[in-house]
Computed example of a mutant assay.
Amino acid sequence: MTQTHRPWALALMLAAMAALQGCGQEDAGSPKATAPPPAASSPAQQAYASITVHHKLGATVIDKLPQRVVALDMNEVDFLDELGVPVAGMPKDFVPHFLAKYKDAADVQDMGAIVQPNLERVHAARPDLILITSLQANHYKELSQIAPTIHFDVDYRDSQANHIEVIQDHLMTLGRIFQKEDLARRKSAELDARVQEARSLIQDRPETALIVLHNNGAFSSFGVQSRYGFIFKALGVKPASPSAEAGLHGQPISSEFIQQANPDILYVVDRTAVMERRPMLDAETLSNPLLRQTSAWRNGRVVFADAEAWYVTAASVNSLKLMIDDVTKAYRN
C-alpha cells in the first residue's frame, strides 16, 4: 500500500470498528439477550405464615404451602381426601374401598408398602411434605432428609384415651397447613355429631359386646385397652368381658372364651379377608358351633364389620364414620 492511501485505509478501519462496537451495544440491550425474570410465587405462597408442628418424633417446620404431598398411611390419605388435597404418592398395597379412586390413578405414584415404604420412590416423587404414622416411624430420619415429615401421634395399641380428639386435632393441623381450616372445622363438627348420635343411642342400653379379630380361623379379642378401646370409652359400648392389656393384634382367645363371655352383640373384624384378599366372612361362611351358641348369634346381632375401615385405617374421619355405622347397626336392629 502506498503512503498516499494510508489515511483513507485508517479512516475506513476506524469506521468499521465503530460500527461493530455499536452493534455489540445494541445486542447487549436487546430483550433477546436479557435473562427471564424469576417466576413469581402465587399469592397463597407469598402470604403463607410458617407453621411448626410438634409431634412425638420432633418438630416439623412448614414454611410454604405444600404442593406435592406423599402420604405413607391410608389414614393420612383419607385426611387429604376429606380436605380435597391432591396426593402425589401413597402405598398401594392395601387401599380401602372408600379410597379406591387412588388405586389406579396415574398421577398418584405408588410408594410401595404401608409397613415398608420404598424410600427411593419417595425421593423420586419430589415431595415437599411427607405424612406418616407409627407404622413408618422407624424411617422418620431418612424421610425428614427428603422433605418435612409429620408424624401422626395416634396410638394403634390403645385408643381409649382421646382417640377421636387426636383425630380431630390432626385434621385441624392439616387444615392449617393447607389453608383449609374452615373445611376442617366442618368435617370435625360432622364427626362430633356422629359420635354424639351413637352415644345417645347406646349409653342407656344394657347389652354387652365383644370385638373379635378373625385370622385364618383363630380369634383375638379387643377390649377397653386396645386399638378399639374408643368404642367402649367414647361411644359407651359395654364390654362383655374384662380383657387384659392387648397388643396391636389383640389378645388371643378361643371359641370357648367367646361362648363363655356370651356377648349380646358380637363384632367380627375379618383380618384374613383384608390381608389375603379373600371374600369376607358372613353368617353362612363362619361355621363355628360355639359362636352359634352365643346370645349374639341366636338373636341375629353378629355384625361383620367393614374390615378395611376397622383394620387398614380406623384413625381418620371417613373410616371412623364407617366404624360408627357398624357399631350402631347392632343397636338399631
Rank of each mutant, 00 (worst) to 15 (best):
104 D>R: 14
96 P>K: 12
55 H>G: 02
47 A>M: 11
316 S>V: 05
174 L>G: 01
174 L>F: 01
163 H>W: 08
114 I>A: 09
301 R>L: 12
148 P>G: 03
2 T>S: 14
295 S>Y: 07
175 G>I: 08
81 D>I: 07
118 N>A: 04
146 I>S: 02
148 P>K: 02
117 P>R: 11
225 Q>M: 11
50 S>G: 03
167 I>L: 09
120 E>Q: 07
261 A>C: 06
39 A>Y: 03
187 K>G: 02
29 G>C: 06
259 Q>G: 00
319 S>Y: 08
196 Q>E: 12
31 P>S: 09
147 A>L: 10
24 G>V: 04
20 L>C: 06
211 I>P: 01
95 V>Q: 10
183 L>V: 06
220 S>M: 07
329 K>F: 05
186 R>S: 13
154 V>H: 10
231 I>H: 09
221 S>N: 14
297 W>F: 11
286 L>K: 05
299 N>L: 04
303 V>E: 00
24 G>K: 14
33 A>L: 12
54 H>S: 14
284 E>F: 05
327 V>W: 06
229 G>A: 05
161 A>F: 11
303 V>D: 03
39 A>L: 13
231 I>W: 10
227 R>M: 05
326 D>T: 01
106 A>Q: 15
13 M>N: 00
120 E>M: 02
168 Q>K: 15
28 A>F: 09
273 A>C: 07
244 A>P: 01
315 A>I: 00
315 A>K: 03
145 Q>Y: 05
35 A>I: 07
187 K>F: 03
73 D>C: 07
162 N>S: 13
324 I>H: 01
128 D>M: 10
248 L>P: 00
215 N>I: 00
9 A>S: 03
207 E>F: 07
266 L>C: 03
331 Y>D: 02
207 E>R: 04
104 D>P: 04
181 E>Y: 02
30 S>Y: 09
302 V>K: 08
185 R>V: 06
310 W>P: 02
51 I>G: 01
151 H>W: 13
192 D>M: 11
330 A>H: 07
153 D>G: 04
57 L>H: 07
203 Q>S: 12
298 R>L: 14
176 R>W: 00
77 V>L: 11
332 R>K: 15
173 T>L: 06
301 R>C: 05
306 D>S: 05
30 S>R: 13
177 I>P: 02
328 T>C: 11
288 N>K: 09
235 L>S: 06
75 N>G: 13
324 I>S: 01
300 G>S: 05
307 A>N: 10
60 T>Q: 10
197 E>L: 08
85 V>W: 13
280 M>F: 13
113 A>R: 15
62 I>N: 06
296 A>P: 01
186 R>A: 08
1 M>W: 08
127 P>Q: 09
56 K>S: 15
25 Q>T: 00
239 P>H: 05
154 V>L: 10
266 L>K: 04
121 R>Q: 12
286 L>H: 04
135 L>S: 11
322 L>T: 00
281 L>A: 10
266 L>N: 02
249 H>Q: 13
54 H>E: 12
263 P>R: 15
259 Q>R: 14
183 L>G: 00
135 L>P: 01
97 H>G: 09
108 V>E: 04
85 V>K: 11
142 E>Y: 00
48 Y>P: 05
278 R>V: 02
